[in-house]
Write a protein that binds this DNA or RNA. Structure first.
Lengths: 195, 195, 195, 195
DNA sequence: TATGAATGAGGATTCATTCAT
DNA sequence: CATGAATGAATCCTCATTCAT
């Protein structure tokens, strides 16, 4: 018998994988139970509800994400270095929590309307403040271009990074650091050859 | 009373809006009917099934998209100009078919496994060929950088463009052409200030 | 434009054909309308309801059947000749009203429970009285065997005749009179060779 | 609590009773559930669909029928004795599986068109081969009359036997063997008194 | 911890029927 | 006479959840 918290984590990993692959709504509790080698009803010994599963998946992920982000933001780096560190950290999270990230991308918008998932909206807000603030600081300090709509830039960088969760496969060609490096190179310097 | 094909289009527009907002699975037929001011069963006078609604929405969108793309690809432009034209055309499609694009983003992966939606996979393949091919030509001809993983670059550009459908609102601050211009500027030249 | 009563009869013939082929419940009004080259709603110009269609089909058939039977029963024939005449008349009805007979076989039992179709039960009762009475008379008069359960004999003869509607095709190998002849020969004399 | 396979059988018996009484199409899943003392949805824990219920009912019946028939056919009896044994066996099956037989009579024709129920058509074919073949052998060997259309004779005997399911009630006046005896007496020797 | 069986609230779909034109 | 569009009730089926064992 595996100790309880370990089993929980395993089951959540299974659930996350299925949620990510099929979407939260389209995923049946029975499917998760099948994957875990038990019957649907048995999952309710471990979790209150299907909703509490996705809740735990997302909050665990966000907790870890913010641990990493907070460290970066507290380091007192310059805007460009901060962006570089945030992007790198993001790809590391995608590497570690790919299913959770994918779920977050697909489901957070409509989950956030429920009180239980208010923290999703909060996180989004804080997230935007951190990134957008850094970008603005970069423009002020003359390291980023000032001829672009800054909100557009923000969305551009944000989406660019996170959508990667939809195709990223851990253990693939490039590790998260190498992907981060190339992404940063594109975002910062563009893909056109300078003449 | 509007004539038949007009009514169909209206109903599909309504359905697309709801599908985009809530996700295909989470959308009930009743919700669409409510929005259209009729009863759930009445929709079945116009459409065979919920599935045939999303089918018609997606195929109509893809038909129009490829009409635009084919024109661009047939124009014999250089790689950079082709990318510029494709990006601009894409934002125009997002402007015209935002709900359809959003649905496509969220649902096409799992829909494509059904035979009925095989055309989604086909489209994806052709799409990749066109974009990736153009990028490769650009590298060969020395207009795009050659120090980047080309597949990564492809995904970067592709996602950059299409994720916009998730936040784009027609009639907003910038029109599609202006957004395309700024996106292209970022993608091609980067956001860092050149020194 | 065909005159109204003619059109009614045509439509009822179409309906009967479909009812017989698919069963009353399994037949949709739309299917009948398709077969008749009109839309489902249009049938309601001619008939009150689906139920009134089967009602008219069955009552028309029973009216004709009893016209024939009453003539036979009024003719004052002996028991054997009466049975022969009833069987022959029955096969003629099958020939003329095959769909109606088939419908009657399949549906009358559960339709008869509704007040509207009380005449089905009445007809059944009168039918049984006529046939069973004739058989009993035959036993009494020494033309039919007396070592058989008379009710069993009745069901045997009755079923033997009417089930034919399930496979009979007008215009086939044998006409109704020839089939009646052979059936009577089997029922009266058996299929075993007499030694 | 009864063990699982027992419960299945009970539920199928209930379903068969209702299907036989009301017809497959006219029977609602809810009605079956009511009769079984549960909610409609609960049936789906035991069966995939309404269709799979009738499937299991019919295939179980046919399996048993053919077990009996195969024994008879393998016994190497003469034509008359074979017919006698088949008829007797048939009435035994009606006694044991009355609802299944009734369902088979009413529904097999239109079910057989679906691939899932192809075995119904197969069974019909084999059935005809066995009975018709036996009758033909009987004519050749001089135990059955040769002045009758043999296919007509076949239908006559076949229908005569199986329609009995529509009125037969287990535990009634005569047991299946007695009914078989009288039926055979009528079929073989006729109902007319020999002079 | 897990199972087996059931619940009950929907959800997609069908279909007889209506009715203005 | 017929159409086109809609109604609304009913139907099959799904699925999160419960609970006694």
């Amino acid at each position: 018998m595996t100790p309880t918290p370990e089993r929980r984590r395993e089951l959540l990993a299974t659930a996350a994988e299925v949620f990510a692959a099929q979407g939260y709504n389209a995923t049946t509790v029975r499917r998760i139970a099948d994957e875990a080698g038990m019957l649907a009803g048995s999952l309710y010994y471990h979790f209150d509800s299907k909703e509490s599963m996705i809740d735990e998946i997302l909050s665990t992920f966000l907790d870890e994400l913010w641990q990493g982000y907070d460290e970066v933001l507290a380091a007192g780096l310059g805007p460009r270095e901060t962006i570089e560190a945030l992007v790198t950290e993001s790809f590391r999270e995608i590497d570690r929590h790919r299913p959770a990230v994918a779920i977050y991308q697909k489901e957070s918008k409509h989950l956030a309307t429920q009180p239980r998932f208010a923290y999703l909206a909060d996180s989004q807000t804080t997230f935007e403040k951190a990134w957008l603030g850094t970008l603005e600081r970069g423009v002020t300090e003359g390291v980023f271009r000032d001829d672009l709509d800054i909100r557009l830039t923000y969305r551009f960088v944000r989406d660019t990074v996170w959508v990667a969760a939809s195709w990223y496969r851990p253990g693939g060609h490039h590790g998260p650091e190498e992907i981060a490096r190339q992404y940063l190179s594109m975002v910062l310097d563009g893909i056109a050859l300078r003449t």
